[in-house]
Computed example of a mutant assay.
Amino acid sequence: MESIRFTFEETKEEVEFAVLSHIQHKDTMYLLVVEEEELTYDDDLTAYVLKVVQSEGDEVVYELVDDDKELEEVSGLLEAEMDGEFELQ
């Protein structure tokens, strides 16, 4: 499973995310991710949807998708890609 390092802009907290799925939609790459350390728990996972906002060589800049309309649209596509392996709440 691929992983990425992400820094939350507000808190500067850095986390390792495991990439569960990704899609290309309207010329933008979106990723469905969970914190790697959460993968060992049996409870429900907290998933995030990130989008690529800049890509130069090996360096990629991600941003959390926080627009409700965009999130709903992309989440539906990611859910279909995962073939029902997760359910958005």
Rank of each mutant, 00 (worst) to 15 (best):
D83N: 15
D58S: 15
S21I: 03
D66A: 10
D83Q: 15
E59F: 07
Q54Y: 13
T46W: 05
V19C: 08
E87V: 02
L88I: 01
D83S: 13
D44E: 13
Y48P: 00
V74D: 09
E79K: 00
V15C: 10
V52M: 10
E16K: 11
T7Y: 05
V65D: 07
E59Q: 11
E10I: 12
D42S: 13
L50N: 06
D44L: 10
D27P: 02
L39G: 08
Q54S: 10
L50E: 07
M82L: 09
E56I: 11
E2Q: 14
L45R: 11
E14H: 05
I4D: 10
E81F: 03
L77F: 06
E81W: 04
F86K: 02
E63T: 09
L20N: 05
S21V: 00
L50A: 06
V49G: 02
F17V: 07
M82D: 00
G57D: 06
E2P: 11
T28I: 09
T40C: 09
Y48L: 02
D67P: 12
E81L: 03
E73N: 05
E72A: 03
D42N: 12
V61R: 15
L64M: 15
G76E: 01
M82F: 00
R5Q: 13
V34E: 11
D68H: 05
D58G: 06
E85L: 07
D58Q: 15
E85Q: 12
E63D: 11
I23R: 06
K69G: 03
F8Q: 12
V34D: 11
K51P: 03
V61D: 13
E87G: 00
L31V: 03
I4P: 13
E85K: 09
F17A: 07
S3P: 02
Y62R: 12
E16P: 02
V15L: 09
F8W: 08
M1F: 02
D58E: 15
E63W: 06
E10P: 02
E9I: 13
V53T: 14
F17E: 07
I23P: 05
D83K: 15
V65F: 07
E35G: 02
E13A: 10
E38S: 12
E35L: 04
E9R: 15
V52N: 07
E63V: 05
E2M: 12
A47I: 01
V52A: 09
V19I: 12
V19M: 09
K26F: 04
L77T: 03
E81R: 14
V15T: 11
I23T: 08
H22C: 02
V15M: 08
E10K: 14
I23F: 03
V61T: 14
H22I: 00
E81P: 01
Y30V: 04
D58P: 15
D27G: 04
L39F: 05
L88C: 02
E38K: 08
Y41K: 11
V65A: 07
E59S: 10
V52E: 11
D27V: 04
S21G: 06
D42I: 08
E10L: 14
A80P: 01
L39R: 15
L45H: 13
D66F: 04
L88V: 01
E56W: 06
Y41Q: 12
F86V: 02
L77P: 01
Q24D: 14
L31F: 04
D44K: 11
Y41N: 13
L77G: 03
F17C: 07
L88E: 01
S3T: 09
V53D: 08
